[in-house]
């Protein structure tokens, strides 16, 4: 029997195939209901103009009750964007991926949120504690207890 997550993800995937992704976001691979890849590009005037990043979603069996683990891909020549809330290992410090996750959110809505997070950034700079975090960070960003201190971006 299909788990809750695969039923829900099947519906989301059908929707993406039917209606397409929002502008600047493309589906790279969704071969199973565990890991999906998207490319994300900030449209219009921004500091990330014409830069393409790759996002990885990892789903747990009780998605959408629990949040997906979302990171930027930093292997095979791909890089994480230089952003105050994005660590160089690809981890993202965003409240909606942690304690403000809600089951009504979806893969596409997370992509749009991250796209707007990048678009609203004024200055390319790494997080203040980047080096310390990257040294000690667990593989799964969900195991990190981020402190969401910045409401501006």
């Amino acid at each position: 029997m299909a788990s809750i997550s695969s039923r829900r993800l099947q519906k989301e995937l059908t929707e993406i195939h039917m209606e397409g992704c929002p502008v600047g976001i493309t589906l790279v691979k969704a071969d199973d209901f565990e890991t999906w890849w998207f490319t994300i590009e900030v449209m219009g005037e921004s500091v990330y103009r014409s830069e393409v990043y790759t996002l990885q979603f990892r789903f747990e069996p009780n998605y959408p009750i629990s949040a997906p683990a979302v990171t930027f891909v930093v292997t095979d020549g791909r890089k994480a964007p230089l952003h105050p809330h994005v660590y160089s290992n690809g981890h993202i410090c965003a409240s909606i991926l942690g304690n403000e996750w809600s089951p009504v959110l979806s893969v596409v809505s997370v992509c749009i949120t991250l796209q707007s997070m990048l678009a609203s950034c004024k200055k390319k700079e790494p997080p203040v504690d980047n080096d310390r975090y990257v040294r000690t960070a667990p593989d799964n960003p969900k195991k990190t207890r981020f402190v969401y201190h910045d409401d501006t971006v």
Partner: peptide, 17 residues
Amino acid sequence: TCLVQALDHAKQCPVDR
């Protein structure tokens, strides 16, 4: 069942928190 699971996770309304 969906809401009971969501409330197990976080004691807030999934739509408006």
